[in-house]
Amino acid sequence: MSEKILTVDRLTMRFGGIVAVNELSFAAERRQITALIGPNGAGKTTVFNCITGFYKPTSGAIRLVHDDGAVFALERLGDFRISKQAKVARTFQNIRLFPGMTALENLMVAQHNALMRASGLTFLGLIGAPSWREAERRAIDLATVWLKRVGLLDRADEAAGNLPYGDQRRLEIARAMCTEPALLCLDEPAAGLNARESGALSDLLLAIRSDCGTSVLLIEHDMSVVMEISDHVVVMDYGVKIAEGTPQHVRDDPKVIAAYLGADEEEAIAVMESGS
């Protein structure tokens, strides 16, 4: 069994003349939290969209290896199959719930493929076969478990669009987890959360890693979250990787500081030295 669940190899994404991601290579370890950080416009979300099939990369390879050794070439899989077959789930920077459906319904939609099989492509379900009823009950149970984990059990029957912002963020993560993913990709899950909420988010992500054995890939600007929960950090700037390593290692890298401050490396070293 490979220890690397995700291997990105020389990934390049061009939009016309703009090179959003240039020859990016990194790997995400199994059952670990890998953070992808970088200043605005560094190309993080583009990498995410390539991994989750929303973009087709210009060149490069993205390999995903399941626990059982099955290998998926994500750059060729594309669209809904990445979630269905390769079991990669994602959340969005700007929350994309189904606002007119209840929290519970959102989690039921996430189990679509499993339920579709159980309902015999609708026909068994239409006649109300016992096997279908059983599958539906199990799906509701799974959804209930996740509602409980994200603390939304008492709001299960409320419309998702009516929930407060922080609850919507957590519900989106719960919805992604209901697809029972091997790799969970989170695009800025802490954006717009207050300190207490992002603390709860960190706990949730750590619990997902330890209890479910799901590997997590994370884009985040909130450094307190990144530093607290990441096992491995990849730093991007202008579409290329400028550093990677443990949170501690990355934090002290002058290149990273320079990228965030928008300054030269020498200046950054000067700032660091004067600061310490």
Partner: peptide, 15 residues
């Protein structure tokens, strides 16, 4: 109904 609500999210959920 999910398709009516948000097509992109549907794709992300493997529909």
């Amino acid at each position: 109904e999910a398709l009516r609500e948000d097509e992109v999210a549907c794709r992300a959920l493997g529909i």
